[in-house]
Design a protein around this nucleic acid. Structure first.
Lengths: 143, 143
DNA sequence: CCCTATAATTATCATATGATAACTACAGAG
DNA sequence: CTCTGTAGTTATCATATGATAATTATAGGG
């Protein structure tokens, strides 16, 4: 197999990943949260506590816009802000209890979707999947 | 490894895929094309010729909005529309020469990025990557 | 203490996007 | 031919998003 063919397979794969994640998050209720705000919540959920700057970097947003959207998330009661004791310019951001519950629900929904796809597989197959995830993460999708 | 741990690995992997594709398309010049328009172009490039309805379905957009954005793409000279001879309600959409060149450039840029990551690997390793892509596509990210 | 860089906020503007209603044109069934 | 469903268009509105300038507060070097 040449590089060209592998590239096509790569494109196809990436498209499928995007489709799948879209399908997974679809249906999870997101009352009042815009797409950009959801991206922020997801990042905070996985990496909390985080600074505003790191949210901006990781979501590829400008600092002013990140600040604006965070304010909305705080108004909705989904995030909390605490001044960093070591550097009082910095804000440490984390999910509030309500935000944590929201994200737990969404991750739970995604988990059940994933279960639906791999729930019936043997331990053997699951091991293969795990290894494939590791391999591609290392070789192709490392960040 | 339990399902919970595999789920975390899954989340991590998906995040890495999103980051990587963002990095890949970043830097490819996109003069005058908005994100949504790019999504449309990408779909048309891979699946052309396509109907407007299928574009709407596959990009998760409403038909009116898809129609509006397609009009802009045609104005920019990136897409072409031909009435279907069999069903004159339908429009067959494809890239124009200019649009094809644009997408060739972008795919070329992505290909070179991919080369940068896997270019030095042995045929053996490439085979492993190919198999991992196939496995995950079949078992986890099938659509 | 002064200077410069960093972290974040606020305000403002232009544009992109999403939702919806009302419409035209055509296909296919009966 | 009429009726109903499908494909697409146009117009309009509200909101989300992106870009940028100006400002505040604090850290850290010298």
């Amino acid at each position: 197999m040449d590089k060209q063919a592998l590239f096509l397979k790569f494109i196809d794969f990436v498209t499928a990943v995007h489709q799948t994640t879209h399908a997974f998050t679809k249906g999870a209720k997101l009352e009042d949260v815009t797409p950009v705000q959801y991206k922020m919540l997801e990042y905070v959920a996985v990496s909390q506590p985080v600074t505003l700057s790191s949210v901006a970097d990781c979501t590829h947003m400008s600092l002013p816009n990140t600040s604006r959207e965070l304010k909305k998330l705080i108004q909705k009661g989904l995030c909390e802000k605490v001044a960093d004791a070591d550097d009082r310019r910095r804000q440490l951001i984390r999910l509030s209890d309500k935000g944590q519950q929201l994200m737990n629900g969404i991750f739970g929904h995604m988990l059940s979707q994933l279960e639906g796809r791999i729930g019936t597989l043997s331990g053997e197959k699951l091991k293969e999947i795990e290894q494939a995830l590791d391999l591609l993460h290392d070789r192709v999708f490392r960040t």
